[in-house]
Amino acid sequence: MNAVPRLDDILTRADVWRGGVMATSVQPGLPTGFAELDAELPGGGWARGGLCELLPTRTGVGELSLLLPALARLSASELSWVVCVAPPHPLHAPALAQGGIALERLLIAGAPGRDAAWTCARALDTDGVGAVVAWLPGADATLLRRLHLAAEANRSLLFVFRPAACAAEASPAPLRLQLDGEGERLRVHILKRRGAACALPLSLAVPRPALLPAASLPAAMPACAQAAPTLSPSSPPPLSSLSSLPPSSHALARPVPAALAARRASLRLF
């Protein structure tokens, strides 16, 4: 029989953490691609093997862009598969390819209702699956716990998107993030992590398609003069006049015969 272990030895174990300090992890995490977030996560990134719950307040605030660097790294560098389960809208392939995801190792399963959790569990049982991204609005704590254990056993990442209203409920996820938009940045509030609570929300510079003008936050909406110069409230211009804009921003996939173009311009006015 071994001697009774000393308390200090127990406290230095990697799977024991104290409430006051952030937990350490034996296995380094997968870098998130955002240095501010890495610094606040145990293991310095997304924990390999485990559930991470993401609670965006609404869609379109940059919730997927937060995951893109990690998913791109998994699919393109580590050659593992990424499985998307029950996405609420169709994913757009050119944007994913722009984000660096290897599309040939991205599997999408449109699983309605209760099949979504079943699909997650099957995907987490599979060798070669690096991450599962699932939208489970109706998941309960038992189900999440089961999925978390499956993800731990297979050492793959599991991201579950749930409505922000679930933030008040208890959850077995070791990491819970509430996501909100803040201008062109993404505000991440770490609701729960292993170790000390994180009081202040982080503000991350997720890639955005355009820049907000310096003085125009949505609260005070000025006229968008530079962005859309021809859009004045009084007289919306016909489409034919818009085509005088610089050619770099145009997609015109056909040679327009002169007669046809003239006919269209005459017919299709606002």
Binding site: L211, L212, L242
Partner: peptide, 14 residues
């Protein structure tokens, strides 16, 4: 509420 247009237009005619 009113939308704030940031970039564009990008013409797609095809």
């Amino acid at each position: 509420g009113p939308l704030h247009l940031l970039a564009g237009p990008e013409r797609i005619e095809s």
